[in-house]
Nucleic acid binder design. Structure first.
Length: 573
RNA sequence: CGGAGCGUAGCGCAGUCUGGUAGCGCACCUGGUUUGGGACCAGGGUGUCGGAGGUUCGAAUCCUCUCGCUCCGACCA
């Protein structure tokens, strides 16, 4: 492609509304343009990356035995009513009516439609197992779209759905997808972790998230430094081996803590560490219960673990008014003594004694408190957030390290949630109807490209992994008005094209500075610079974007050298 | 949806408090000089000041309503 005939609108300055690096760089490199909140045009240069990502996904899905299909964006309400999600999904589901007033939604995911396909076309266990996938534009009317392609409302996703007659088959399908996902993200050249995850609203029995490691990631994950264990902190289990029951040595004592509300304030005021306090959180649940939760002072509650433990949809910190009513004190002074609601303590608290708790009165705390003697706890459970340094729940020697990650893929074992609701069954070998066991597997295409940039950039621009680069090499003619330079660059462009290399020729009549800045910004892995100075010696310059490494090549050898480098990089995957 | 903020040229912004002919930088167009890391000279075009209503002799500026966008929180590929 010739730059002068292309549309590659680069920007010198960052758009004001772009917060994260990948969004800024995708805008500046002319990959995307915003149409509305969370809705983007894929400009030619950006689309090439998207297509490459799709192709990698397609190849690996096919290799894993999945079959491509394409389902509609517009879904009839009927199917969603059948699964019960028409009511449950909430405002994120964009609903509309056709001219006959029939209700539809834009598909945010396609479990209903795929289940409808399979129940209508698959009747016998002999047609199974089956794994169908599509690469499709989804729409989720997010409350707060942000970060460009990282969290759009309209976005391209690969979603696959597996169907089996039994659990064992479903587990195999899950494992195949898990392995395929590993290959996909490896081929993209990304640093990632597959982590155990909470299966969330989509439901199902277990799931893994694929996280691209990046500082700007929205998710916190932990992984063991000794074994394979890795999990989203929302899910990460904590373990207390050989936990000792400590002996109380201190007397319970009421102390004045004037206006000392937060854990940090109270700890500083009493000249103690936050870990010597026990905090009491008043929690409200979707089942309309108010209860108290005890955690070591420096720990965070994991609301998802708590909600799962209680079997409720959500469990959140209660509003101030509820706290006041329940404890008789404003927030900041809650304590377990004298509360007449259910008390659940984090298991870590069982190993504590002589700690500080709130006094359930303004400006009052207790020191020297201990379990059993001063108050009773109804239940001990794992309800806190894991942090770096916690022991690994799987192996004996490991410690957890913490990371930030961008969720680019998610595999779920769904079980029979949808097949049961929508009556998707096949006849087994004894002629009995069996409910299908399903799995679903998503990859955010645009998000993965954004994550790749998030992980591969410097202050000058993008540093494309070869597998996702819109073009593999840039041929830059320093001065197109110099006939020798122009001819040499044209010759390279032709040769590279003939060798099957994806090449962009910068034939613009611009100053070298502009061309080099743009080259760094758009970040193609290789750059051949053709300038009068080196050409006099019959040489051109090859620059590797990632390392900055420069070398001079004979004009005649440059094309084959580039092909060799491209082939090596792609083979390495 | 709760809280905060912003809408002025293609992009980045000033001007709004204190009403009086709509500005700056970059980009863009023409001519010339320049050509290995975002050049220089000369000339040029560019706006329903987000929209509607109101106050006023006069509104980008004050008032009311509205729409859009961004940021912080809970949800997700």
């Amino acid at each position: 492609m010739r730059y002068t005939q292309y549309l590659l609108p680069t920007l010198k300055e960052n758009p004001a509304d772009a917060e994260v690096i990948s969004h800024q760089l995708m805008m500046r490199a002319g990959m995307i343009r915003k149409v509305a909140a969370g809705i983007y045009n894929y400009m030619p240069f950006g689309l090439r990356s998207i297509r490459k990502m799709e192709q990698i996904v397609r190849e690996e899905m096919d290799r894993a035995g999945a079959i491509e299909c394409l389902m509609p964006m517009a879904n009839p309400a009927e199917l969603w009513q059948e699964s019960g999600r028409w009511e449950k999904y909430g405002k994120e589901l964009l609903r509309f009516k056709d001219r006959k007033e029939t209700e539809f939604c834009m598909g945010p995911t396609h479990e209903e439609v795929i289940t409808d396909i399979v129940r209508n076309t698959v009747k016998s266990y002999r047609q199974l197992p089956l794994n169908l996938y599509q690469i499709q534009t989804k729409f989720r009317d997010e409350i707060r779209p942000r970060f460009g392609l990282m969290r759009g409302r309209e976005f391209i996703m690969k979603d696959a759905y597996s169907f089996d007659t039994d659990d064992a088959g479903a587990d195999k399908a899950y494992d195949r997808m898990y392995q395929a996902y590993r290959r996909i993200f490896q081929r993209c050249g990304l640093k990632f972790r597959a982590v155990e995850a909470d299966s969330g609203a989509i439901g199902g029995s277990f799931s893994h998230e694929f996280m691209v490691l990046a500082e700007s990631g929205e998710d916190a994950i932990v992984s063991c430094d000794a074994c394979e264990y890795a999990a989203n902190v929302e899910k990460a289990e904590l373990i207390y081996r050989n936990q000792l029951t400590p002996v109380a040595t201190a007397e319970l004592q009421k102390v004045d803590t004037p206006a000392q509300k937060s854990i940090e304030e109270v700890a500083a005021f009493l000249k103690l560490k936050p870990s010597q306090l026990v905090k009491t959180l008043i929690i409200q649940t979707s089942a309309d219960e108010v209860l108290a939760v005890l955690l070591r002072g420096d720990r965070e509650l994991n609301e998802i673990k708590l909600a799962n433990l209680l079997g409720v949809d959500w469990a959140l910190m209660a509003e101030d008014a509820v706290v006041q009513k329940t404890t008789g004190a404003p927030t900041g002074f809650a304590g377990p003594i004298g509360l007449n609601i259910r008390v659940i303590a984090d298991r870590e608290v069982r190993g504590m004694a002589d700690f500080v708790i709130g006094g359930n009165a303004v400006d009052v705390h207790y020191t020297g408190a201990s379990l059993g003697r001063d108050f009773e706890v109804g239940q001990f459970a794992d309800i806190r957030q894991a942090v770096g340094g916690d022991p690994c729940p799987r192996c004996d020697c490991g410690k957890l390290e913490s990371w930030r990650g961008i969720e680019v893929g998610h595999v779920f074992k769904l079980g029979t949630k949808y097949s049961e609701a929508m009556n998707a069954t096949v006849l087994d070998d004894s002629g009995k109807a069996r409910t299908l066991v399903m799995g679903c597997y998503g990859i955010g295409i645009g998000r993965t490209v954004a994550a790749a940039i998030e992980q591969n950039h410097d202050e000058n621009g993008i540093i494309w992994p070869l597998a996702l680069a819109p073009y593999q090499v840039l041929v830059s003619m320093v001065n197109p008005k110099d006939d020798a330079v122009r001819e040499a660059a044209e010759q390279l462009y032709r040769q590279l094209g003939e060798l099957g290399i994806e090449v962009l020729l910068d034939d613009r009549d611009e100053r070298p500075g502009i061309k080099f800045k743009d080259a760094d910004l758009i970040g193609l892995p290789l750059r051949l610079t053709v300038g009068a100075r080196n050409l006099k010696e019959g040489k051109v310059e090859l620059t590797q974007r990632a390392s900055g490494e420069m070398s001079l090549l004979e004009l005649g050898e440059a094309a084959t050298r580039v092909r060799q480098l491209v082939a090596e990089a792609l083979d390495a995957d």
